[in-house]
Design a protein around this nucleic acid. Structure first.
Length: 416
RNA sequence: GCGGUCGUGGCGAAGGGGUUAACGCAUCGGUCUGUGGCUCCGACAUUCGUGGGUUCAAGUCCCAUCGAUCGCCCCA
C-alpha cells in the first residue's frame, strides 16, 4: 500500500475546499464588522507555553499533544488550541501598550492526538477571536453575540447559546470543596468515570452523560459566586438580552481548559453524531499573567470549522458555488489550436475564466468536457473560422451559435 | 487509551473456500469524417487494504497490522 494520510487528517479536495473558502470569507467579513484584526501565530510553540497556558492537568496537555524535540533538543508542540499562542504573541509584541484594546482573530489548523470520530479530527480547524485589555461585561457579550451571528449568517438553524460563570479562582476552589463534600458520601455509587472525576475535576460529575441523576441536589456554582463575579455575570446577561440574543444558563457547564474565569459559554447544535457542542469560549483574566505578561484580562471563543461544515451538511444548507467557466475553447487543426492557445491567454488576461483540452481529444469529447465544466460558452475555431478571422461562439444554455471576430470575443463573453 | 462495525476497479456495489472476480455510475472510443446534455455498441481489476497462517485450492476461514467509520474518555 502506498503512503496514506495520517490518521485523523483530511485532504480537502476541489469541490469541498470551496465550502471552506466560503466559511473563511464569512469569518473574515464578520471580524471586519466587529473590528477584529487577523493575527497569524506559529503552528508550533514551545511545549511549555501550552503546559502553562492550557493547564498541566487538562487532557489536552496530559495526553493529546503532538510533542517533539527539535534538532536543538527543545521541546516543541503543535498547537492544540489557539488562545495560548495568541496570548504569547500579544505579550511578546507588547500589544498591551497600544492605546486601544487588542481585538484579534485567527483561522487555522490545530492538532490533538485523539481517536477520531464524527466531528473530531487530529488536525482540525478553528476560527477564534480574542479580545484583550478590558473586563467590561459588554465585551463578553459582544464575543458571545458575534459567534451567534456568525452561525446565523451562515444559515445554521437551531444553534443554542449556553452560558455559565465559573467565577474566579477563589470562589471556584470553595465550590470545588463543597462539591466534593456533597459527593463524598455517595462516591462509591458513582459510575467508574465519575469516581476518577471526583479527584481530578468534580465539576465534571455534574456533566456526566451516563447518569444525569448524579448531580441532583448538588450545589450550584452560581451560589458560590462572590459579589464581583455575580455582578459581572448579571451584566453579561443584560447585554445579551439587550442585543436580542437568546441564551440559557447552564450552571453545570464545564469547559476543558483551565484558564477560564467568569464567563464560560458554548454553542450547541444537533447534527454531528454524539457531539452537540460546536464551539465554546469564555473569559480568561489570569492567563496573560500566567504566560508572563502584565495582568491583562481577555475573552474569546474558539469555533470548530469542521463542525460548522458538518452541521451545514446535516441541515442541507446551500453554499454558493465557485466561479463558473466563461468559455471553453476548441481548436480544430494545428493552426487553429495555436490560435486557441493565444486567444485563451487573452481571455484570461482580460479577467475571464477559460479552459481548453490538453489531451488531444475529439471535438465531441471536448464538448462533453465543456458541458461537464458547465462552461457558459464554447468557442470553436476550425479552418473555416481561421480563414475568415472569426470564432464560433456557442451559448451552451440556449444552443445558439454566432460568429464574432477575435477582437469582439472578449466583450462578447464579458457582458453575457 | 478502550470498544462495535467495515476495507473488492475512479465511485457505488455483488460474490461467504473451487478454478474466466457480477452489475450500476463515471471515463474513453464508435454509431454521428467539425458541435454537449438522449439511444445503441465496444473498451476498462492477472486482482479483492497490507503481512503471515490453514488448505490440494482463500476476496471468501484464522491471526496480526494499517486505515475508515461510529461510540467511550475528553473536546472543536
Amino acid at each position: 500500500m502506498s503512503i496514506q494520510k495520517p490518521k485523523g487528517t483530511q485532504d480537502l479536495l476541489p469541490g469541498v475546499v470551496e465550502k471552506w473558502q466560503y466559511i473563511e470569507e464569512k469569518a473574515r467579513d464578520i471580524c471586519a464588522r466587529f473590528n477584529y484584526k487577523e493575527i497569524r501565530s506559529p503552528i508550533f510553540e514551545n511545549t511549555e507555553l501550552f503546559q502553562r497556558g492550557v493547564g498541566e492537568t487538562t487532557d489536552i496537555v496530559e495526553k493529546e499533544m503532538y510533542t517533539f524535540l527539535d534538532k536543538g533538543d527543545r521541546s516543541m508542540s503543535l498547537r492544540p488550541e489557539g488562545t495560548a499562542g495568541v496570548v504569547r504573541a500579544y505579550v511578546e509584541n507588547k500589544l498591551y501598550g497600544e492605546p486601544d484594546i487588542a481585538k484579534l482573530y485567527y483561522i487555522g489548523p490545530m492538532f490533538r492526538y485523539e481517536q477520531p470520530q464524527a466531528g473530531r479530527y487530529r488536525q482540525f480547524h478553528q476560527f477564534g477571536i480574542e479580545a484583550f485589555g478590558s473586563t467590561d461585561p459588554s465585551l463578553d457579550a459582544e464575543v458571545i453575540a458575534m459567534g451567534y451571528l456568525f452561525y446565523k449568517e451562515l444559515g445554521l438553524q437551531g444553534v443554542r447559546v449556553e452560558i455559565n460563570s465559573v467565577g474566579n479562582p477563589s470562589c471556584r476552589s470553595v465550590y470545588r470543596e463543597e462539591l466534593q463534600k456533597f459527593f463524598a458520601p455517595v462516591k462509591d455509587q458513582l459510575c467508574k468515570d465519575c469516581q476518577s472525576r471526583y479527584d481530578r475535576n468534580p465539576m465534571r460529575i455534574l456533566d456526566c452523560k451516563k447518569d444525569q441523576a448524579h448531580g441532583v441536589g448538588a450545589p450550584s456554582i452560581l451560589d458560590f459566586l462572590d459579589e464581583e463575579c455575580s455582578t459581572h455575570f448579571e451584566k453579561v446577561q443584560r447585554h445579551l438580552t439587550d442585543m436580542g440574543i437568546e441564551y440559557e444558563i447552564n450552571p453545570r457547564m464545564v469547559r476543558g481548559l483551565d484558564y477560564y474565569t467568569h464567563t464560560a459559554f458554548e454553542y450547541k447544535c444537533a447534527g454531528i453524531g454524539a457531539i452537540d457542542t460546536i464551539s465554546g469560549g469564555g473569559r480568561y483574566n489570569g492567563l496573560v499573567e500566567q504566560i508572563g505578561g502584565d495582568d491583562q484580562p481577555g475573552v474569546g471563543f474558539g469555533l470548530g470549522l469542521e463542525r460548522v461544515l458538518l452541521v451545514l451538511e446535516a441541515q442541507a444548507v446551500a453554499i454558493p458555488a465557485g466561479r463558473p467557466l466563461d468559455a471553453y475553447m476548441i481548436g480544430m487543426g494545428e493552426q487553429a489550436e495555436a490560435e486557441v492557445a493565444k486567444l485563451l491567454f487573452r481571455l484570461r488576461a482580460a479577467g475571464l475564466t477559460a479552459e481548453k483540452d490538453y489531451q488531444g481529444r475529439k471535438m465531441k469529447a471536448q464538448m462533453k468536457s465543456a458541458d461537464r465544466m458547465q462552461a457558459r460558452f464554447v468557442a470553436i475555431i476550425g479552418d473555416e473560422e481561421l480563414a475568415q478571422g472569426v470564432i464560433a461562439l456557442k451559448n451552451m444554455a440556449t444552443g445558439e451559435q454566432v460568429k464574432v471576430t477575435f477582437e469582439e470575443m472578449v466583450t462578447a463573453l464579458s457582458d453575457k
